[in-house]
Design a binder for these strands. Structure first.
Length: 763
DNA sequence: CTAGGGTTAG
C-alpha cells in the first residue's frame, strides 16, 4: 500500500530559511527587503520584478552594492535579462570590483546562464585570479549552448595552467559528452573520476549515467547505478534510471525501480511520474499506465505539463485517440512537446489529415517548431501522401536550418519516396552527412510504392549503403526481401536472405515473415514452408504469410489446414488471413468452402468484409461460373462504386468469355474511371480475347483520343540467374524475334489467332 | 563569507 503525501508538493512554499540574510537586517531600507523577497519570487522574469530590481539597485550606495550584489545578480540571472546584467556589470566596473575573483565569478556565471558566452569569456579573460569556480562556470556556459568543443578547449586550458579538475568540473565535462560521438571521451573522464575518488559523488555518478544513457551504452548505465551506495541514491538518479530502463525496453524493471523509490522513503517528483508514465507506452502496460495516472493525481503531479505530455504519448501509442485528445485539451500551458505528442498520436492512428490541420493551429498559437516536430509533421504528410503540404514543410526545414538533421532528413526521404519522387528522395539522402539504416529504408519504401521494374535499383542502393558503411537492419532486409518477392527472383531473394542471416537479422520475425512470402512468390513453396517451420515464434503476419503462400500456389486445402492450425494456436484470424484463405479457395476451385467462409467471417471471426473480400468473392463466383451471383453481390455490397470490383468482374468475364456480363461490367468500369488507361486496356483485351478485334480496336482508339497517360505493362522471368524484362509491345529483348515466332506457333495451336492477340491475351 | 555541478515528456 502506498502512503500518500498530505499536501500537493508543488504548492509547498519555498523554505523561508533561504531568505534569512535579508530578514535578519531589519534596519535596512524598504527596497532591500523588497529585493530579498524578489529572490524567492516564483516568477522572477516578470516585468514588475525587473522594474523592482532596477529601482532598488540604481539609487543605491557603493556599500550597498558591495554587500548585497550577489543576491541582485542572482535575481538578474533568474530574470534572464541581459540588459539588466550589463547594467550591474557597468556598476561593478564603475566601483572597481570587476577584477575581484568572487564578483568576476558571479559575472561569468550570470553571462553564462544568459547564454552570452562572448561576454562571459571576456569577463573571464580580464580576471586576474581565477579559481575552479571560474573555470566551471565558463565551461558550464559553453555546455548550455551545446558548444562541446569549447567546453573541452576551456578544460585543456585549465589543465595547462595547472588547475586540477574537481567533482564539479567532472560533472560538467561528462554532461558535455552526452552524445554518441563523445562517449569515448566520456569513458576517459570516467577513468579519471575513478582514479580521483570522485565516484562517490552523487552528482558525478548521475552525470555518468546520463552520459551513458544519451550515448546509447545501456549496460554501462546499469553498472554505474549499481555502484552507487544505497543511502546515496536520490530521486534524480532514480528518475534517470527509470527513464533509461524505459528506453531499453525494460518496462518491468522501470516499474520495480519506481516501487523501490516509493518504499525507500524518497519523495517522487514530477520527473519521476513523467518518466514512469512514459515507460507505459510499451504495448503491455496500458493498465499500469492508467493506475500511475491516478497515482500522479494523488501525489499532485498530474497537472504538470510534462506528466500530461507523457500521458498523451501513452494514449497515442495505445490507439486511444479520444483519451489522448481529452488530456491534450486539459493542459493549460501547452508546449511544443504537447503539440508534437498529439500530432504524432494522430499520425500513428491514421488521422494524418487531422494532424496537419492541428499543426496549422499550432503555428497560429505562435509555438516554435523544432526538428522532432517537423519530422512528425512530415510523417503525417507521407501518411496521407500530401506532397504539397510536405513541400512547404521542406521549405521551412531549409529556412530554419534542419536539413542536416538525420530525423528530419529521413522523414523527407520517406515523404518523397511515398509520393514516388525517388529523385528528390535520393537528393536528400546524398545531402545527409550522418546516414542511418532508416534513411536507406525510407528510399526502399519508394521502390515498393512505384511498383515498376526500377526495382533493379534497390540492390544498387543496397550496395551504396554497404559502401558507406551504414549497417543494414531488419527493416532493410524485410523490405529487400519483399521487393525481390514481387520481382519473383528466387536467386536474388535467396542471396538477400543469406545476407540477412549472415548479418544477424535472420531470426528477426519481420525478416522471416518476408522470407516466407519471398519463397512463396518466387515459386518455392517448400522453402516457404521450411522457413515457416524453422521460426522460433510466429505472429499473425507469419500465419497470414503461410496461408497466403498456399493460396498463391493453388493449394487451397493446405491453406485451410494452416488457417485452422493458426486458430488452435490461439491466433485470431484478421482481415488479411480471411482474404488469403478466400484467395486459396478461389485459386483452388473450392467454391463452396469460400462462400461458406465469406458468410461466416463476420459472425464467427468478427471480421467485417471490406472491398478486397468482396472483390475476391466476385472473382471466385465468376470462376465458379456463377457470374450473375457475382453481379448481385456487387450490387448488394457497399462497394458498388468501386473501380476495383468492376475491374475484377471484367477480368473474370474475360477468363470465362462471358460477353453479356462483360459488357455490363465494362460499362460500369468506364463510367467510374473514364480517365484511366488501364481500364481501356483491360476492356480492349477482353474483346480481343473473344476475337472481337473491331470492338477491341474501338476501345483502344477511344483511349488514344483521350491521350491518357499510360504505363506500359511488363513482366519479368528469371532464367539461368538472369532476370528478363518484358515490356508490352517493346521489342527490346535480344531474342524478340524468336519469342514472337513462338507466340505465333502457340497462337496457331490455339486456333489460328495471330501472335499479337495471343500476346494481349497473355498480359 | 557569499559562488560553480546531476534528472523529464514528443
Amino acid at each position: 500500500m502506498i502512503s500518500l503525501l498530505p499536501t500537493n508538493l508543488l504548492q509547498i512554499p519555498l523554505n523561508p530559511s533561504k531568505s534569512i540574510p535579508a530578514l535578519k537586517s531589519k534596519q535596512r531600507n524598504n527596497s532591500l527587503n523588497f529585493s530579498s523577497e524578489l529572490l524567492n519570487s516564483r516568477n522572477p522574469s516578470s516585468k514588475s520584478t525587473r522594474f523592482s530590481i532596477v529601482s532598488c539597485v540604481f539609487p543605491c550606495e557603493e556599500n550597498f552594492l558591495y554587500n548585497e550584489w550577489p543576491q541582485i545578480l542572482q535575481t538578474s540571472i533568474g530574470c534572464g535579462d541581459f540588459l539588466l546584467g550589463q547594467s550591474i556589470h557597468a556598476f561593478l566596473v564603475k566601483f572597481g570590483y570587476q577584477n575581484d575573483t568572487f564578483r568576476g565569478n558571479n559575472l561569468v556565471n550570470l553571462y553564462a546562464k544568459l547564454n552570452r558566452l562572448g561576454e562571459a569569456q571576456r569577463v573571464f579573460d580580464e580576471m586576474l585570479d581565477r579559481n575552479k569556480i571560474t573555470w566551471t562556470s565558463l565551461m558550464n556556459g559553453y555546455l548550455q549552448v551545446n558548444d562541446v568543443e569549447s567546453v573541452f578547449q576551456v578544460a585543456s586550458q585549465m589543465c595547462r595552467v595547472g588547475e586540477r579538475f574537481n567533482e564539479y568540473c567532472c560533472s560538467v565535462m561528462l554532461q558535455a559528452c552526452s552524445s554518441a560521438e563523445y562517449v569515448f571521451l566520456g569513458k576517459q573522464i570516467h577513468c579519471f573520476v575513478v582514479k580521483s575518488g570522485f565516484r562517490e559523488d552523487i552528482f558525478v555518478a548521475t552525470s555518468l549515467i546520463s552520459m551513458y544513457s544519451m550515448g546509447g551504452c545501456s549496460d554501462d548505465t546499469v553498472k554505474v547505478f549499481a555502484g552507487i551506495s544505497v543511502n546515496e541514491k536520490d530521486v534524480r538518479c532514480m528518475n534517470l534510471m527509470i527513464s533509461e530502463y524505459g528506453k531499453a525496453g525494460s518496462g518491468e524493471k522501470a516499474i520495480w525501480l519506481f516501487l523501490d523509490l516509493l518504499s525507500s522513503g524518497l519523495d517522487p517528483d514530477d520527473y519521476t511520474f513523467t518518466n514512469i508514465i512514459s515507460v507505459c507506452k510499451e504495448n503491455t502496460l496500458l493498465e499500469v499506465g492508467r493506475q500511475l495516472q491516478g497515482l500522479a493525481m494523488k501525489y499532485g503531479f498530474v497537472s504538470e505539463t510534462s506528466v500530461r505530455n507523457a500521458i498523451i504519448t501513452m494514449y497515442g501509442k495505445h490507439g486511444l485517440v479520444e483519451d489522448m485528445e481529452k488530456m491534450f485539451q486539459a493542459i493549460s500551458e501547452k508546449n511544443l512537446v504537447s503539440w508534437t505528442a498529439l500530432l504524432s498520436g494522430y499520425v500513428r492512428n491514421n488521422y494524418a489529415i487531422k494532424a496537419l490541420s492541428y499543426f496549422v493551429e499550432m503555428l497560429n498559437s505562435s509555438i516554435y517548431v523544432d526538428s522532432s516536430c517537423l519530422s512528425t509533421v512530415l510523417d503525417g504528410c507521407s501518411e496521407c501522401k500530401n506532397l504539397d503540404f510536405g513541400l512547404q514543410i521542406h521549405g521551412s526545414v531549409i529556412k530554419i536550418g534542419y536539413l542536416s538533421d538525420v530525423n528530419v532528413g529521413t522523414a523527407l526521404i520517406h515523404l518523397y519516396a511515398k509520393c514516388s519522387n525517388l529523385q528528390s528522395a535520393r537528393l536528400i539522402l546524398n545531402g545527409l552527412s550522418h546516414k542511418t539504416a532508416a534513411c536507406f529504408n525510407a528510399i526502399l519504401v519508394g521502390f515498393t510504392e512505384i511498383d515498376s521494374h526500377h526495382k533493379e535499383d534497390a540492390l544498387f542502393l543496397f550496395s551504396q549503403q554497404r559502401e558507406e558503411d551504414v549497417y543494414p537492419d531488419a527493416v532493410t532486409f524485410s523490405q529487400l526481401l519483399s521487393l525481390s518477392a514481387n520481382q519473383a527472383s528466387l536467386i536474388r531473394g535467396k542471396s538477400i536472405h543469406a545476407c540477412a542471416i549472415k548479418m544477424g537479422c535472420g531470426n528477426d520475425i519481420s525478416v522471416a515473415n518476408a522470407a516466407i512470402t519471398m519463397y512463396a512468390k518466387c515459386g518455392s513453396i517448400d522453402d516457404a514452408y521450411l522457413m515457416f517451420r524453422s521460426m522460433n515464434e510466429h505472429d499473425t503476419i507469419s500465419w497470414n504469410a503461410m496461408v497466403s503462400a498456399y493460396a498463391l500456389h493453388g493449394q487451397g486445402r493446405r491453406a485451410f489446414l494452416i488457417f485452422e492450425e493458426m486458430q488452435r494456436q490461439g491466433f485470431a484470424p484478421d482481415k488479411i488471413t480471411i482474404l488469403s484463405a478466400l484467395q486459396g479457395c478461389c485459386y483452388s476451385g473450392l467454391w463452396e468452402d469460400g462462400i461458406c467462409l465469406f458468410n461466416e467471417m463476420e459472425p464467427k471471426y468478427g471480421v467485417r468484409a471490406i472491398l478486397e473480400h468482396f472483390a475476391c468473392m466476385v472473382d471466385l463466383l465468376g470462376r465458379a461460373g456463377r457470374i450473375p451471383e457475382a453481379l448481385n453481390l456487387i450490387k448488394n455490397s457497399p462497394y458498388s462504386e468501386s473501380p476495383l470490383i468492376w475491374r475484377t468482374l471484367v477480368n473474370v468475364c474475360k477468363l470465362c468469355g462471358d460477353l453479356s456480363f462483360g459488357k455490363i461490367a465494362s460499362k460500369h468500369l468506364l463510367d467510374l474511371t473514364p480517365e484511366e488507361a488501364g481500364s481501356y486496356i483491360l476492356i480492349s483485351n477482353f474483346y480481343a480475347g473473344r476475337g472481337m478485334l473491331k470492338e477491341a480496336a474501338k476501345v483502344r482508339t477511344m483511349m488514344n483520343d483521350l491521350k491518357l497517360p499510360k504505363e506500359a505493362g511488363y513482366s519479368t522471368i528469371e532464367v539461368d540467374n538472369k532476370v528478363h524484362l518484358f515490356v508490352a509491345s517493346s521489342k527490346d529483348h535480344p531474342e524478340t524475334k524468336e519469342i514472337y515466332a513462338k507466340l505465333d506457333l502457340i497462337g496457331a495451336e490455339m486456333g489460328g489467332e495471330d501472335a499479337e492477340n495471343v500476346f494481349l491475351a497473355l498480359i
